[in-house]
Simulated scan of single mutants.
Amino acid sequence: MTLKRHRGLTEQAATAAVDQACRMLRLPTIRAQFPELAEAAARDQMSYRGFLAELLMAECDDRARRRSERRIKAAQFPREKSLRAFDFEANGNVDAAVIHTLATCEWVKKGLPLCLIGDSGTGKSHLLIALGTEAAMAGFRVRYTLATKLVNELVEAADEKVLTKTIARYGRVDLLCIDELGYMELDRRGAELLFQVLTEREEKNSVAIASNESFGGWTKTFTDPRLCAAIVDRLTFGGNIIETGTDSYRLASARAARA
């Protein structure tokens, strides 16, 4: 197969035309990879259809990668965490099979909740971010926030008369990840505003939370028993509860590194 001439163009002119067309059609990957792929196609005597397929698949793959990167960035994770980097051997409380099943994101597709409960250093925030990242890579809109930050934002929104708009914005994402729920006591107003967000998402879009308190201890955070019970119901109905335990493997790892 020869790519030297096309409709009377020299090879150099054809290359320039491809470059210009890719700019106009916004095909940056084809533009960047065309020379190398064209040489490989000629060397391997690839058919015209095969060469075209290689170009288009390269563009599609790169666009999918860029979309994933944009969704991960939009999620506002505080740091990168992956399931591959989670040490399941160091934390026997966490079932690797269960976590990898959650990584398929079927629960996000169904709008189900997820609760990660355990002491500091047991990996719950790592899993929250890693599973949120998996959801973003799978095409879901994800948003991460600290519980206190979310409540403060809701209080400010209520004061500025834009609460409905703020709650609707949080309601639109496919997965809302709320970290450090239970670390600080919330006053009744803050708890009620958080409850509104959870109610907006109930049975429509998923919520995943990480908390250092068992459900029985949530009355320290939500001081109204009835409101506390309603929030627990919103976050557990039909969902998954993962207990990461009480032994800090992060602390154990640090000690081992110093030994």
Rank of each mutant, 00 (worst) to 15 (best):
L3Y: 05
L9E: 02
E11I: 00
Q12G: 10
A13R: 13
A14N: 03
A17W: 04
A17H: 04
V18N: 01
C22R: 08
R23E: 11
R26E: 11
R26Y: 09
I30G: 02
I30Y: 02
Q33P: 02
L37M: 14
E39V: 12
E39K: 12
A42C: 10
S47F: 05
S47Y: 03
Y48R: 14
R49L: 06
R49G: 12
E54H: 07
M57L: 08
A58L: 02
A58F: 00
A58P: 01
A58T: 04
R67M: 10
E69A: 15
R79H: 09
R79M: 14
S82K: 12
D87R: 14
A90W: 06
V94M: 04
V98T: 15
H100I: 04
C105T: 13
E106W: 08
L114V: 00
G118S: 01
G121Q: 07
H126R: 05
E134G: 02
E134T: 04
A138H: 12
R141I: 10
R141P: 02
T148A: 15
A157T: 00
L163K: 10
T164D: 15
C177Y: 07
L186I: 04
G190I: 08
E192G: 08
V197E: 09
L198G: 10
T199W: 02
E200F: 08
R201C: 08
R201V: 10
R201E: 08
E203M: 11
K204R: 14
A208R: 06
A210R: 08
S211E: 03
N212G: 09
E213A: 10
G217E: 06
T219H: 13
T221C: 02
L227K: 00
C228W: 04
A230H: 01
I231C: 05
V232E: 03
V232Y: 00
D233I: 06
G238N: 06
G239Q: 01
A252F: 03
A252C: 04
A254K: 15
